[in-house]
Design a protein around this nucleic acid. Structure first.
Length: 425
RNA sequence: AGAGGGUUGGCGGAGUGGUCGAACGCGGCGGUCUUGAAAACCGUUGUACCGCGAGGUACCGGGGGUUCGAAUCCCUCACCCUCUGCCA
């Protein structure tokens, strides 16, 4: 969530930022919040001074009782009782105000960075980089959902039987290809200085709140009904939460972690042609990069992460475009996001295979992830993350783009990982 | 899963109703001494919020309660340890 002091100190900037996201009433929304904050501070001041008086009197009572002056003590007790009652009222008021302010802040998205394009839908996203030539396929080329049947490498029917829709089985060379992609991505990340992490795939409610999946997108996470845990929608959640309630030293920065996990998404209400086959699943594997960085260097890091993703896609020989998301299309918690879309020739579609974001202090504020400054003042750090990469969609693009009459060619960089250079009957 | 014991500041560890935000030790930081370092000695050392400031408030696993007053008593939840059971 946003810091209240940031909104106060950069009010106009905050308003115009939210307007860029398409929030028309941003000004009144933030003004209300400022009024609420003013009331909150007043109430806190009042409460503090009542408590201070009560504390003083309580201490006097202690001394009087020790000195044997019971009657005076009794008198003070009554006075203190009155103060305590006042304090209780003020405390309730303060709690209500804080809750309201918190709720309000939870519902305000991050302020877009200055380089985020104007626009209210995906149509206004800005393509900033394009790479590779779109393959032209022979007659009889297929989308991946047909290819996987033809070569018997991924089985959706089996998934339906054993679990339900959106939980495919990868078999034989299909399974091997998943493992090859994961290992390739992990090795590349390691070479770029990321530490590999294997986190739990279930998290508690506090963690979900801290990275912003809760309460906003509760419908996206699977909840474990009898233990208050949630299945992670991305490794970002457990890995970023490592640093919850933490104060780092400047010398610890940048923190660079990479995790390979299954991701679970309810994706409630998503149906239609866009979601066929591997395009959208309830469970899928993803390699995720997570960085914690100094505010001064976070955009440099964002750039570096985008370059990393570009390089992965280039090595895999997948034509892609890199898109600077416009204000209206930006994720709730993000200050700036670049999406990477890969062209899948068999279905003639661009598939989003990576999303690289800088959250600035939006997450660290909830996480209470700070850094000890040289002046001993603590400040909030920046978090960033990016997929590198989402495996099933990459798989889909590979199958479709590299298909030929008798089989599917495996990208050269993967061959050492798969042990085969083509999938044929 | 059952029985018992725990949870205190960066770490170890006192504290069972009243100047306790918390003794003491270690570690960290600053200083004296030294060519430099070590040792020794002196000082300092949590976080958040309110306030221009002086200063104030809150926090001893989380939440609630008793009391004029709670780290200390009561309830509850979570986690940890030991033993028994089960298990990859």
């Amino acid at each position: 969530m946003l810091e209240i002091t940031t909104i106060k100190d950069h009010f106009d900037q905050a308003v115009s930022g939210l307007i860029k996201r398409g929030i028309a009433n941003a000004e009144s929304l933030l003004s209300e919040l400022m009024d609420l904050d003013k009331k909150r501070r007043e109430t806190q001041s009042n409460l503090d001074s009542v408590l201070a008086e009560a504390n003083t009197k309580s201490k006097m009572i202690g001394r009087l009782i020790q000195g044997g002056e019971k009657e005076q003590a009794q008198q003070l007790k009554e006075e203190t009782s009155v103060l305590k009652n006042q304090a209780k009222g003020l405390q309730d008021k303060l709690t209500a105000l804080v809750d309201k302010q918190q709720e309000s802040l939870y519902n305000i998205p991050n302020i877009p960075n200055g380089n985020v394009p104007e626009g209210c839908s995906a149509k206004e996203n800005e393509v900033v980089e394009e790479w590779g030539e779109l393959p032209s396929l022979d007659d009889g080329a297929m989308p991946h959902w047909d290819l996987i049947q033809k070569y018997d490498i991924i089985d959706f029917d089996l998934g339906n039987k054993v679990t339900g829709a959106g939980f495919p089985f990868y078999k034989g060379r299909g399974a091997k290809l998943v493992r090859a992609l994961a290992n390739f991505c992990l090795d590349q990340a390691e070479a770029a200085g990321y530490q590999e992490i294997q986190p739990p795939v279930m998290v508690n409610e506090t963690s979900g709140l801290a990275t912003g999946q809760l309460p906003d997108k509760e419908g996206q996470m699977y909840a474990i009904s009898d233990s208050n845990y949630y299945l992670i929608p991305t490794a970002e959640v457990p890995i970023t939460n490592i640093y919850r309630d933490t104060i780092l030293e400047v010398s610890d920065l940048p923190v660079k972690n990479v995790g390979f996990t299954p991701c679970f998404r309810r994706e409630a209400g998503s149906w239609g042609a866009d979601v066929r086959g591997l395009n959208r699943l309830h469970q899928f594997d993803k390699v995720e990069l997570v960085q914690v960085n100094h505010p001064e260097y976070s955009y440099k890091a964002l750039d570096e992460m985008c370059k990393h993703v570009s390089l992965l896609l280039q090595q895999l020989r997948l034509p892609y475009r890199m898109v600077n998301l416009c204000g209206g299309d930006l994720g709730f918690t993000s200050a700036q996001t670049f999406d990477f879309e890969v062209y899948a020739a068999g279905q003639d579609k661009w598939l989003e295979v990576s999303s690289v974001s800088n959250f600035e202090t939006y997450q660290t504020n909830r996480l209470k992830l700070r850094c000890r400054g040289e002046d001993k003042k603590n400040f909030l750090l920046h978090t960033l993350n990016g997929s590198a990469l989402a495996i099933p969609r990459i798989l889909a693009a590979i199958l479709e783009n590299f298909q030929y009459q008798e089989g599917i060619r495996i990208p050269e960089v993967l061959v050492p990982y798969t042990g085969f250079d083509a999938i044929t009957h």
